[in-house]
């Protein structure tokens, strides 16, 4: 299986993700520059974190017009696996591959720390290696992670089992205090209806090595390799 990590101008987790996949997991991984028109045969596409185009406008709003995104959208519509991490999640929402939108944190502050998460759906390509309702933790680092969606859209997410990760406390309680950004229903990660496109605010690539005292992120990628 071959992973492709997209580099937008302003991506800054591109190498982190590449390093994790290639040198920690040992899977074939390539970079895909945003000006390119081909996915070069990659089986899984990752839109990494960062500040594409500086995110001076809405986050992800310009990145969706990059030439590579046309290919990514086609690929996703044909059922190809796509993961958007942080800024990548924002780009997926802007591109219409995922419903809803990510807005400024309700605290109006950037937020960075290790956040507890609950795996509320483990029957996906991306989470099948976790236990149902498993409490894990991952680093978060974002200024605009406040996920919003209208009522019908939210109902759809629940009806189709599209919500994958929720912010929680250390015991797995979904509480207001454990919500770092005001996200509706503590949503931290969702997938599309077909289950092949996954967006999440936390950074699994930052918690995949024992040296960081947390390897909870590995299972996302192991789940994909299990597919």
């Amino acid at each position: 299986m071959k992973f492709g990590v997209v580099i937008f101008p302003g991506s800054n987790c591109d190498y982190d993700t590449y390093y994790f996949l290639k040198f920690v997991l040992g899977v074939e991984t390539i970079f895909l520059f945003h000006k390119e028109n081909s996915l070069q045969g990659a089986d899984v596409i990752i839109l990494p974190g960062g500040f594409s185009y500086g995110d001076y406008l809405r986050t992800g709003a310009i990145a969706k017009f990059s030439p590579i995104m046309k290919e990514v959208i086609n690929f996703a519509n044909k059922g190809g696996l796509v993961i958007g991490i942080c800024n990548g999640f924002q780009i997926l929402c802007e591109s219409g591959l995922l419903p809803g939108a990510l807005t400024k944190n309700n605290t109006l502050k950037f937020v960075c720390y290790s956040q507890n998460l609950k795996v509320v759906n483990n029957k996906t390509f991306f989470t099948n290696n976790y236990q149902m309702n498993e409490v894990i933790s991952m680093p978060i680092a974002h200024g605009e992670g406040n996920y919003i969606i209208d009522n019908d859209g939210l109902k759809d997410l629940y009806d189709n089992d599209q919500i994958i990760l929720k912010y929680c406390d250390e015991f797995g309680n979904i509480t207001q205090e454990s919500n770092p950004n005001g996200s509706i229903d503590n949503i931290a990660g969702i997938c599309n209806k077909n289950g092949n496109v996954f967006g999440l605010m936390p950074h699994p690539e930052r918690c995949g090595e024992p040296i960081f005292g947390n390897t909870d992120g590995i299972k996302i990628f192991e789940s994909i390799l299990n597919k």
Binding site: C13, V111, C112, A141, R206
Partner: peptide, 17 residues
Amino acid sequence: KNWIYHQYDYTVGTNTV
């Protein structure tokens, strides 16, 4: 000073031990 450093991304780069 967590009020301060939680506003800084201190884990990007995946090197911060």
